[in-house]
Amino acid sequence: MAIRQLSVFLENKKGSLSEITNLLAEAKVDLRSMCIAETSNYGIVRIIANDPAKALEILIASGFAAQIRPVTAFAVPDQPGGLAQVLEILEENGINIEYMYALVTTIADKAYAVMRTDDEEKTEAVLAKNNIELLDEKNV
């Protein structure tokens, strides 16, 4: 069920992000969502794309430290406290979130998010049991 996310380890300096987006553009990889975690020395850019395997191949061939890992994509219940409800479920089940960001999709009228937790399989099982809508790559 989980979707694949591409991450790249980048130098925190001018031009390093565009180097990646240019490479992916040339390879005609379509980017759906992106989030950057940065420190003063480096950045980690996380990307949801239509063809992560191809993107990874290109980046590795160009010498980047990159990886694909599964993340959980889910629909945030569209009401006040919707996200709080999801977080509460995770907390009750002892699941820790490493990071989370909004997922841009073509599906109208709904909010989606992507997260990495310390136990992806359990996360998906717990969310499904609580009727939180999960996305697979076909929906993204």
């Binding site: 996310q5 380890f9 590795i60 890992r69």
Partner: peptide, 14 residues
């Protein structure tokens, strides 16, 4: 330099 195979995408792990 971090060897590519050692990269894991969280700031915590780095």
């Amino acid at each position: 330099e971090l060897p590519p195979e050692q990269f894991d995408d969280s700031v915590k792990s780095i």
